[in-house]
């Protein structure tokens, strides 16, 4: 399991697939999800195989999630905000 090495900062809570996830204020959704042990963020649009954040710097697009109903958002580029509703992106949500 991933661990946090330093003291607790301010916590921001959002939901991922209906479960509550705690993020540190200012960190990205992808970092918070990985810290919570959630490594799968989307399904491949071709085979439906599971994928998860790969580069954490906005180039691979493996971290695409649906945020508050809007698909194709990069979880590694978006800072977690309180109350966000985040869901895995399924294969039928076509990438623009």
């Amino acid at each position: 399991m991933p661990q946090r090495i330093d003291g607790s900062g301010e916590t921001v809570r959002f939901t991922f697939e209906g479960r509550e996830v705690a993020a540190r204020a200012g960190e990205t959704l992808a970092a918070a999800l990985i810290a919570a042990g959630e490594t799968t963020t989307r399904d491949s649009v071709v085979s439906g195989a599971p994928r998860g954040p790969f580069c954490m710097m906005g180039v691979c697009y493996e971290c695409l999630v649906e945020i508050d109903g809007v698909p194709n958002r990069q979880a590694c580029m978006i800072v977690a905000e309180p109350g966000m509703t985040v869901n895995r992106q399924t294969a039928d949500e076509v990438v623009a």
Binding site: P50, R51, G52, P53, C55, M56, M57
Partner: peptide, 8 residues
């Protein structure tokens, strides 16, 4: 999932 770059 669980495979990343070292940069990540």
């Amino acid at each position: 999932p669980g495979v990343t770059t070292v940069g990540a």
